[in-house]
Amino acid sequence: MHANNEIGNILDIFAVGNLCKLYNAIFHSDTVQTVGHFPFDLRNTPVHFITGAAHKFHGPKGVGILYINENVRIKPFVHGGGQERNMRAGTENIYGIVGFAKALETATANHEADSAAIGTLKYYMYEQLKKHVPGVAFNGDVLGRSLYTVLSVSFPKTEKSEMILFNLDINSICASGGSACTSGAEQGSHVIRAINNNPNQVTVRFSFCKHNTKEEVDLVVEKLKELV
């Protein structure tokens, strides 16, 4: 995983790729959180496969990409027709493909300005929470090698904060307790358990995009002051 989807930590895929190369291992990196948000030079990146998803950068849901290094050969996933270079038979999702390409083109063209604006919002919320919410803690390398789109926050567990996700939701504030992949799981986030197994904290993941505003962050912080 190039970047963790819960706490935002970014893995050095060059270091991992070179290690795999040393031991003649095939390297696939889940880059769903970073395609469309960070520049990639795949000709000079030691990786055999990467994956991306359009909805992570405002493209259509249900369409993604698999990059396969030209020096790697794998068997077809679905046999039959010759679609997708004989790798996956079946009628292609033309609308999804075009939507993915256009969204990626837009994200790439505006990357510098968008990443700066989104990162500013993330760090503004970080500072506001530190200032206004006693006992707040943050997970991951928030000020270092981290996604500018994700902020993982742990609040002191109280009678009110145990219902924090529910109360945020009824106040039209979208946040999550972990990854979308594990929504509904009763045991909570395995990532948070691994790095911060504190039963006296409640963890919430906030995500940011180019459409968010400073005023929205202020609104969320004010609401959190009531809910914690």
Rank of each mutant, 00 (worst) to 15 (best):
F100D: 05
A89Q: 02
T182N: 12
H79D: 11
P39A: 14
L224A: 07
A54F: 03
V63C: 04
S189T: 02
G177V: 01
A53W: 01
H37N: 14
T108K: 06
H48D: 15
F38R: 15
T106Y: 05
N110A: 06
E70M: 08
V16M: 08
Y124M: 13
N69F: 08
H111P: 00
V150G: 02
L151C: 12
K160Y: 02
L121T: 01
L66R: 14
D114G: 01
L165K: 02
H211A: 13
L143Y: 00
T158W: 11
N93E: 03
Y23C: 05
E159Y: 07
A3Y: 01
L42S: 10
T182F: 08
S154H: 02
Q128P: 01
I164K: 07
T182S: 13
K21N: 12
H2E: 14
V72W: 05
E127Q: 14
K122Y: 04
H55V: 02
K21P: 00
P134W: 04
N69P: 01
K160R: 13
T213K: 05
A175K: 04
H28F: 13
F49Q: 11
D30E: 15
F208Y: 09
I192E: 02
N212E: 12
S179P: 01
G36I: 12
L143H: 04
T108G: 07
E112L: 09
S176Y: 03
A109P: 00
L151W: 10
I118V: 15
Y123P: 00
V47R: 08
N93H: 08
T106W: 04
D30Y: 06
P156W: 04
E159W: 04
G184A: 10
S115I: 05
N197F: 07
T91M: 09
L224R: 04
S189N: 03
N9P: 01
D218Q: 11
I68S: 12
V228C: 14
L219Q: 12
Y148L: 07
G82F: 13
R73Y: 08
E84C: 13
T45R: 10
V63Q: 02
Q187S: 13
G144P: 03
Q187V: 11
V133Q: 04
E159P: 00
A109V: 03
A109K: 12
G82L: 13
N139F: 07
N18W: 05
S179N: 04
H190D: 12
P76G: 06
T182E: 11
N196M: 08
R88N: 07
S183Y: 03
A185E: 10
A3Q: 09
G62L: 04
Y126W: 07
G144D: 12
